[in-house]
Write a protein that binds this DNA or RNA. Structure first.
Lengths: 330, 330
DNA sequence: ATCAACTTCGCAAACATTTGCGGAAATGAT
DNA sequence: ATCATTTCCGCAAATGTTTGCGAAGTTGAT
């Protein structure tokens, strides 16, 4: 007891060589059926499990994919992780998950660690998409493929998988116009993130091109609380008939203000959000939203990575289309 | 390029032996300062990172903790994971996370996989706490310590870390009585889980002992939707003045029904839940709750595991005390 | 009896690292 | 000059596994 079984222990007990035991367990044709049987029996009896470290050392493949996210506890990331884990597992890969906590230094350390573990590939959502990617370029020269997801640097040197940010915003804007909304309050997040810029520009572009006479007020909110205050204030003054939220965080704040004002959806005020769908389902009526599914993204990202592991291809930018999900708030 | 640097590559370039290089990088006193310098320079130049697999094979320590949860994408688990990752990382441990998807077979496979990777320890929340733990006992004989968290089997043979389920329920019941509620609807979850039983019994016990004349209606709900229907129905008929929810899931359903009935909190109806606090913060006023923090639990669990790794101690059952968090719904 | 062919298995190297031990060179003391 | 000590480094084994190659042993044909 204590130390786990090894090929050697099995081999000495059976008076066989290590190589024979190894081959027997792998159904190598060179080994006779009778010894295969004996070996396998003893192996299961001894609860033998191959030492992954020895295997990886020998084969130079770890069957582990590294995953770096700013934070695990975030509705988007966790569904991404869940999907990636599931997708990878089906092909025999496991996940090593690291948090960078919005700290570039920690992020760099994470990369080092994953390199030490000789992971076969890395999935990463960077802490900020504005800084230099030379460190990643240098890193990828070491032979470990990197795939960026969600928050991606703007370069074509790497595989990227992200949401159709512009498309989602355009979809949202068109829906709002179709529903004949005339006085709109649109909430956007941290303006330093490229995702915010993209969504905002696409959103506004639709209204700029529209012939309709529509009043559009755009607000940048850095937190849920700020969104609540902005909406509460707007409700008192310019009385919008529609509020658009580009993220769950903002939606939460907006809904608090709306509840406090005791407004009824969708009659007195209508809502549209960009979300993965969980938060919208908490309200009654449920919030209509443009879906950006972390789950789908995780599936796609892992799939792409595995594809690349099998036969290296050119870097590709994959964009996950978004779709309109009817709630009762619009 | 391509293959990562190794001790051998460094050693041949410098006309040194592998062992000297290895020692130089570790600041071994036997090595002169001048060669240390040379070695370190070349090492950083070549982006040398030790091969974790070779190290682990040699040292028989993996510095990896395995984590098995039914599902990652769940508000409780993800904060648990985040905390455990952080806590472990500070001591040089990383996490290998696996999902069992509420499937005992998958759970068994996960254990196998973690054994293959020779993880130093395993943190697990079992899919159901009612089945045999003999498999775990057998497994732990292989030398890998197991710690159960949240959903724990009832045995004293293992370390366990879980919420103070009875205490939380007792706390809740006493608070409700103190607030002079007289007609209470209490929602509990899946009755097959021991956590449900414990909470329910402790909750009811308080009312049984109470001298007050209180009407208590207890309902078992298997889903958020069912909770919504139960509450909606109760609101029409026995008109409770208070709703207690033992989980976030039930709270979500209850709140939908309450919103639809357009009741005001806490005047027309009051709410108390057991939660980690996220969902309660979404409403306005925020829901008062008894906190059961996944984050705290993760920290505790990982800390206990590392403690045990340093010097093996007797199995211990750790219980995380719960606390009352004032919202505005009671 | 000879040789070929096939079946079944073992030897040994390789993967990258750690570490006990021993050895050469340099220094110092006598 | 001799010996002891110190400084610095290399040899080699060990971790558990995979795999090319070769070597017995068996079988069958001639």
């Amino acid at each position: 007891m204590g130390n786990p079984a090894t090929l050697k222990k099995i081999s000495t007990q059976l008076n066989l060589s290590i190589s024979t035991v190894s081959r027997a367990l792998k159904n190598h044709p060179d080994i006779s059926e009778s010894t295969k049987r004996k070996v396998k029996e003893l192996a299961t009896l001894m609860d033998y499990e191959p030492n992954a470290y020895a295997v990886n050392l020998r084969t130079n493949k770890s069957k582990v994919i590294g995953l770096i996210v700013p934070s695990i506890s975030n509705m988007f990331n966790d569904s991404f992780i869940a999907a990636a884990e599931k997708e990878g597992r089906e092909k025999g890969y496991t996940l090593m998950i690291l948090q960078s906590g919005d700290d570039p230094v920690q992020e760099a350390e994470n990369l080092k660690l994953l390199k030490q573990y000789r992971v076969d590939g890395i999935l990463i959502s960077v802490v900020t998409d504005s800084y230099a990617i030379t460190s990643f370029e240098k890193f990828s020269e070491s032979g470990i493929p990197i795939l960026f997801f969600d928050r991606v640097p703007s370069t074509i040197k790497f595989d990227t998988v992200c949401m159709a940010d512009e498309e989602a915003a355009t979809l949202a804007a068109n829906a709002i116009i179709n529903y004949k909304k005339k006085n709109i309050l649109a909430l956007f997040g941290n303006e330093e993130l490229s995702i915010t810029k993209k969504r905002k520009e696409a959103f506004q572009a639709v209204f700029d091109e529209s012939k309709e006479k529509i009043k559009l007020q755009v607000a940048a909110c850095k937190s849920s609380d700020q969104a609540m205050r902005v909406v509460a204030d707007a409700l008192l003054h310019n009385k919008p008939d529609h509020v658009f939220c580009m993220s769950d965080e903002l939606l939460i704040g907006a809904m608090k203000a709306i509840h406090q004002a005791e407004l009824k959806m969708p009659k007195q005020i209508s809502i549209l959000a960009i979300s993965n769908g969980f938060i919208p389902s908490l309200y009654s009526p449920e919030i209509t939203y443009i879906e950006t599914s972390g789950f789908e993204l995780g599936k796609l990202a892992m799939r792409r990575m595995l594809e690349n592991l099998e036969n290296k291809t050119e870097p590709k930018a994959i964009i996950l289309p978004s779709r309109f999900v009817e709630g009762g708030s619009l």
